[in-house]
Amino acid sequence: MCRILLVEDAVPEAQALRALIEQHPCAGAIQLESCTFSQVRKRISQGPRVDALFAPVDAPGDRPTCGPDERAGIALVRELQDRGDLPLTVYCTTRAAYTSAVYGTDHQYLLLAPYSPTEARNALDKLFGLLGHRAASPLALRSNGTVHIVDPADVVYVKSMGRKVLVRLSDKRLLESYAALSELEQQLPGSFVRCHKSYLANMEHVVQASSDGLVMDCNEAVPVSQRQYRSVRDALMSFSAL
């Protein structure tokens, strides 16, 4: 279960964001709470544990810790960061002018209103990947007349073969299933990266990366297309740094 705390002072933006969170494929594994900006510190300090915080950059109210050019939401995140209480954080703002200011604090994503369903999905996927797949829904893969229920954390890579996919699992099983790679990409969490038009790789299982391909912890290589190399490299750097 992934517990998300949504600061809802900014209406209707917060209502729109709540709707997008509730539409995510893993919504059944999300426990969504809300509070006002003034209640955030108390809620986080008193538990239960908050896994992720959606924090408005330009929050209402003055805070004594704000610098002359600092927004209240950024000051709040800085406070939580300094005292070691900061959950994974997604900043939300209606003003593009504030986007550069957030990079002085720890955060995982920045959403700019009006919120894009795709960007909201990407933010949640990244959070789920960083939370160790606690919120990732299991996959149901039909193979040779049997339905296999698979934890996404156990998937090393997925390879497309026409109307089928090959799914390599960490226990060395190789499942062949009728599915589209694009459909599985939508179901899998943010730890998966499209490294080739025919491959998805789980960054949790990458042990080596180069322009020639990815070496996985099952001692198999997964190709990286020249077109995808830069985005794969950046994704791996961000993933391994957190």
Score class of each variant (00 low, 15 high):
Leu139Thr: 10
Glu176Met: 12
Ser45Trp: 07
Ser238Cys: 09
Asp125Leu: 00
Arg194Ala: 02
Tyr98Lys: 00
Val77Trp: 00
Asp171Arg: 05
Gly132Cys: 10
His107Asp: 04
Val90Trp: 02
Ala55Gly: 01
Arg194Asn: 06
Gly132Asn: 08
Ala241Gln: 13
Lys42Trp: 09
Asp85Arg: 11
Leu127Glu: 01
Tyr103Val: 00
Ala135Thr: 08
Asn144Val: 03
Leu181Asp: 05
Gln108Cys: 12
Ser38Arg: 15
Asp85Leu: 15
Leu236His: 07
Arg3Tyr: 04
Arg3Gln: 12
Pro60Gln: 09
Ala136Thr: 10
Val150Met: 02
Ser191Gly: 09
Tyr229Arg: 10
Ala180Lys: 15
Gln228Val: 01
Ala153Arg: 15
Asp125Phe: 01
Asp58Cys: 02
Leu169Ser: 07
Leu131Thr: 14
Asp234Asn: 13
Met161Ala: 14
Val57Cys: 10
Gln186Glu: 15
Ala140Thr: 10
Asp154Met: 04
Ser100Trp: 04
Phe239Asn: 09
Arg18Leu: 14
Gly61Asn: 08
Ser34Cys: 14
Leu112Arg: 01
Leu110Thr: 04
Ile44Asn: 02
Gln226Cys: 08
Pro48Asp: 09
Val90Cys: 10
His205Asn: 08
Ala235Gly: 06
Arg227His: 14
Thr118Val: 15
Gln187Asp: 13
Gln108Thr: 08
Thr94Pro: 02
Cys2Lys: 09
Val90Asp: 00
Leu112Val: 13
Gln226Asn: 12
Ala97Lys: 13
Ser116Trp: 08
Ser225Glu: 12
